[in-house]
Amino acid sequence: SSRTRFTDYQLRVLQDFFDANAYPKDDEFEQLSNLLNLPTRVIVVWFQNARQKARK
């Protein structure tokens, strides 16, 4: 499967949200999905990866 290429804007929004809340609710994932024009699944995985990185 091909990797999603995030724009700088998408990454900034995701990172800002993550800094405020590492565990979004379903409706928040949906809002981010609509805002960033990305599939919810891609955003869910991004947050999983970000939490892994933050733990190191």
Rank of each mutant, 00 (worst) to 15 (best):
Q15L: 10
Y23G: 05
T7C: 03
V42R: 10
T4G: 04
V13Y: 12
R5Q: 14
V44N: 09
D16K: 07
S2E: 15
R41H: 14
L36Q: 00
E30L: 04
Q31P: 01
F17P: 00
I43P: 02
Q52C: 12
W46F: 06
T40K: 15
W46H: 03
Q10E: 03
L14C: 03
K56G: 11
K53C: 11
N21C: 06
S1V: 08
V42G: 11
E30D: 07
Q10W: 00
F17D: 01
Q15F: 05
S1I: 15
F18Y: 13
V45W: 09
A22Y: 07
R3E: 13
R12Q: 13
L32V: 08
R3Y: 15
Q10K: 00
D16C: 04
D19T: 13
R55C: 06
L11K: 08
N37Y: 05
V42I: 12
E28T: 06
T7K: 06
A22Q: 09
I43L: 08
D27Q: 09
P39F: 02
T4S: 13
L14P: 01
W46D: 00
S33Y: 01
P24Q: 01
R55F: 10
Q15K: 06
L35T: 14
V44Q: 12
Y9W: 07
W46I: 00
S2M: 15
I43V: 11
Y9F: 04
K56L: 04
I43R: 01
Q15G: 12
D27G: 14
F17R: 14
A22N: 12
P24K: 01
E28H: 04
Q31A: 07
V44Y: 03
T7Y: 04
Q31Y: 07
R55S: 14
S2P: 09
K25P: 06
D16T: 09
F6R: 02
Q48R: 10
D19K: 08
D16G: 12
T40I: 08
R12W: 03
N21K: 14
K53N: 14
T4H: 10
V45F: 08
T7G: 04
R12T: 09
P39C: 02
I43T: 04
W46Y: 10
Y9K: 14
Y9G: 10
S1N: 14
L35P: 00
L11D: 09
R5I: 15
K53F: 12
A22S: 10
A50L: 08
N21Y: 02
S33I: 00
S1C: 14
D26F: 05
R5S: 15
F29E: 03
L11Y: 04
S1W: 00
L35G: 11
L32W: 03
K56M: 11
N21S: 08
D16R: 11
V44E: 11
V45C: 14
N34Q: 07
E28G: 04
P39M: 01
Q31R: 12
D16P: 00
N34I: 10
R12L: 07
F17W: 07
N37P: 01
R3T: 15
V44F: 08
R5V: 15
I43C: 05
A54Y: 04
F17L: 05
T40Y: 13
Q52G: 10
F6T: 04
R41W: 08
L32G: 01
W46P: 00
Y23L: 08
V13W: 01
A20K: 14
N34D: 07
D8G: 08
L11E: 13
A20G: 09
I43G: 02
S1A: 11
D26E: 07
K25N: 10
L38Y: 03
K25T: 08
A54R: 03
N49E: 14
V13I: 05
L11G: 08
R55P: 13
Q48P: 00
N34V: 12
Y23H: 07
V42L: 13
E28P: 00
V42Y: 09
V13G: 05
S2R: 05
Q15D: 08
Y9P: 07
V45G: 14
I43A: 03
L35V: 13
D16A: 05
L36E: 00
T40V: 10
A50S: 10
K56Y: 08
D27A: 09
S2K: 07
F29K: 04
T4W: 02
P39G: 05
Q10C: 01
R41E: 13
R55T: 11
F17Y: 13
S2H: 11
V44H: 03
D19M: 14
K25D: 04
A50Y: 07
V13R: 05
T40C: 12
Q31H: 08
D27P: 04
Y9E: 12
D16S: 12
Q52M: 08
T4Y: 07
L32A: 03
A54M: 02
Q52R: 09
Q31G: 11
F29T: 06
L32R: 01
L14M: 12
W46G: 01
A50C: 11
N49L: 05
R55E: 15
I43Q: 02
L11W: 05
A20I: 04
Q31I: 14
Q10S: 04
D27M: 11
A22D: 15
D26L: 05
R12N: 13
Q48D: 14
I43K: 02
D8T: 08
V42K: 11
T40N: 11
V45M: 09
A54K: 04
T40M: 14
N34Y: 08
S33K: 09
L36C: 05
P24L: 03
R41T: 14
K25E: 05
E28V: 08
L35C: 08
N49K: 12
T7Q: 04
N34T: 08
N37L: 09
F47V: 03
F47D: 02
N49F: 03
A20N: 15
P39V: 00
K56V: 08
L36Y: 01
D27R: 08
L14K: 00
R41C: 12
A20P: 03
W46Q: 00
D8C: 12
S33E: 03
F47N: 00
L11C: 02
L14R: 00
D26M: 13
R5L: 15
D19Y: 08
L38S: 03
K53D: 15
A22I: 10
Q15P: 01
L38I: 13
R55Q: 13
E30S: 09
S33T: 05
T40W: 09
R51N: 15
L35S: 12
Y9H: 09
A20V: 06
A50H: 06
V13Q: 14
L11I: 13
Q10L: 00
Y9D: 12
R12M: 05
N34C: 05
Q48N: 06
N21E: 06
K56A: 13
N34E: 14
A22G: 13
Y23R: 12
D27H: 08
A22K: 08
Q52I: 07
R5C: 15
Y9T: 09
L36W: 01
S33W: 01
D16V: 05
F18P: 01
N37M: 11
R55H: 14
A22V: 09
P24T: 01
V45E: 15
K53P: 06
L35Y: 09
F6N: 03
L35I: 14
A50N: 12
N34A: 14
L36K: 00
A22C: 08
R41M: 12
D16Y: 01
Q48S: 12
Q52D: 15
D27T: 10
F29Y: 11
N49H: 06
K25Q: 06
F6A: 02
Q48G: 11
Q48T: 08
K25Y: 02
T4M: 15
T7H: 02
F29C: 05
L35D: 14
F6V: 07
S33M: 02
S33D: 01
K25I: 07
S33A: 09
K56Q: 08
V42E: 15
T4I: 13
D16E: 09
T4Q: 10
Y9I: 04
L36D: 00
T40P: 11
E28W: 02
L36A: 06
E28K: 04
Q15E: 13
Q48K: 11
